[in-house]
């Protein structure tokens, strides 16, 4: 319990900053909606001149723009996803990397506490921080959309969209935790985090090969599909959960056996 509280306190400040960044980005993006909505035809002719990769990169999809949620799941969501997954992978990588790098492990691992307890406490702490981030996002974005849309939205679809963000965050948290346990000495966790997120995101904008999609979590959620069908693609949900569970199990196993020197 003391480790849990300690970790929460340690990362609370950065979590608040991330929440603020994501909120402000969301506010900025969503505030464009009334303008785009009224000038949709002009906007779409402008957008149509852009090459396809750019449209993909910013999640711009003219067909979706006509509804508030459609608009929200284009480029506002793009930025929200990039920022929130970045936040969670940084948390994940730092979970053990800071311990290994700063030799803080000497402190924690020579206390009468089992290694698996340490991992559990840390996981729970970061899970809590991610949930807090996501909850605040859920309500604040909802309010923003309602305000700028001047009308209600389909709460079910909205929930599904935000829940997909949570799943993505958890995937990157879990994978992030695993990385430093098998990399020997990680010099800069920040640049690695940014590299992974930006690299995968860039890949997700032009890779269409079915087999490669499994390696790009951003591709697990097709918002056009979610908006139209009001459901997820089941195989990707299973895949998401599988990635999370396997990463968590391996983190436990490897950390339990790791030599700290």
């Amino acid at each position: 319990m003391n480790i849990y509280i300690f970790e929460i306190k340690k990362y609370l400040k950065s979590t608040i900053i991330w929440i603020l960044i994501i909120f402000l980005l969301g506010l900025l993006m969503i505030s464009f909606y009334p303008i785009i909505k009224t000038d949709l035809i002009e906007f779409s002719s402008l957008i149509n001149n852009y090459p396809k990769p750019i449209k993909n990169a910013f999640g711009i999809n003219i067909d979706m723009m006509s509804t508030a949620l459609g608009y929200f799941s284009s480029f506002p969501l793009t930025f929200i996803i990039i920022c929130s997954t970045l936040q969670s992978i940084i948390l994940g990588i730092s979970i053990f990397n800071n311990e290994f790098k700063e030799k803080v492990s000497d402190f924690l691992l020579t206390k009468p506490v089992e290694r698996k307890t340490i991992v559990t406490a840390k996981f729970l702490a970061y899970f809590t921080l991610i949930i807090i981030t996501n909850l605040i996002l859920f309500f604040s974005m909802y309010i923003l959309i309602i305000i700028f849309n001047k009308g209600s939205i389909n709460i079910n679809i909205y929930f599904m969209i935000l829940f997909s963000v949570l799943l993505l965050q958890l995937i990157f948290l879990a994978v992030g935790c695993l990385i430093p346990t098998f990399l020997k000495k990680l010099k800069s966790s920040l640049s690695l985090s940014i590299g992974i997120i930006m690299g995968l995101y860039t890949l997700s904008t032009f890779v269409d090969d079915e087999k490669l999609l499994y390696f790009i979590p951003f591709k697990y959620f097709n918002y056009k599909y979610i908006l139209r069908e009001q459901k997820y693609e089941t195989k990707y949900i299973i895949l998401s959960l599988l990635v999370i569970i396997v990463s968590v199990i391996f983190t436990y196993k490897i950390y339990n056996k790791k030599d700290i020197y």
């Binding site: 340690k10 700063e102 030799k103 803080v104 000497d106 402190f107 020579t110 206390k111 009468p112 506490v113």
Partner: peptide, 14 residues
């Protein structure tokens, strides 16, 4: 470890 105190050679803390 309940009964052990340890001072590492290089001290790094949070």
């Amino acid at each position: 470890l309940k009964d052990v105190g340890y001072l590492p050679s290089e001290v790094f803390y949070y």
